[in-house]
């Protein structure tokens, strides 16, 4: 077992975990931050996307140890208190989610996308989402939501 410490959503945390523990399991099981989801085992679906040191990362593809000392942000830490992040608002406003399972990863990916590309066109948004699966929405309203968020950010 190894003690792994990092800052998650602004709080210093640490947990004693097996060295093989993935970041996603560290977040979900040790910190009970269950908003980050596991949808596959091949790093394809993106349900587990969180931010590590400001960049979108698939937390199923990173060992918790690799994130030791990092600043991690999960979906639970995205809103500013009761004030939703504009991407969260846009997903609700434009019906960018149905079952909600891919949503945290989608939103975290979108926030990172808009940080790098503030005003993406539809083709860019679709291309940038290639690492995130949604089985419910056909992406139509997700694309619409991200576009709308880009206009208010």
């Amino acid at each position: 077992m190894t003690v792994v410490a990092m800052q998650v959503n602004g709080k210093q945390v640490s947990a004693d975990v097996e060295p093989r523990t993935l970041l996603v399991h560290y977040l979900r099981e040790n910190l009970q931050l269950t908003g980050t989801h596991v949808g596959c085992d091949t790093s394809q679906c993106g349900a587990c996307v969180v931010h590590v040191d400001g960049k979108a990362v698939k937390s199923c593809t990173v060992l918790a140890m690799q994130a030791a000392g990092a600043l991690v942000r999960t979906i639970e830490g995205l809103a500013d208190g009761d004030k939703l992040h504009p991407v969260q608002e846009a997903f609700k406003e434009h019906h960018g989610l149905q079952c909600g399972f891919c949503t945290p990863g989608m939103i975290m990916t979108a926030v990172d996308m808009l940080r790098r590309i503030p005003k993406p066109d539809e083709t860019t948004i679709r291309h940038e989402l290639e690492g995130n699966f949604c089985r419910c929405t056909g992406y139509h309203n997700i694309v619409k939501a991200i576009k709308a968020a880009s206009e208010v950010l």
Partner: peptide, 16 residues
Amino acid sequence: RKEDFRFITGNGHYTD
């Protein structure tokens, strides 16, 4: 949707 708030904030309750 009324249900969206919990999903966009990571507060859904799935079986896992």
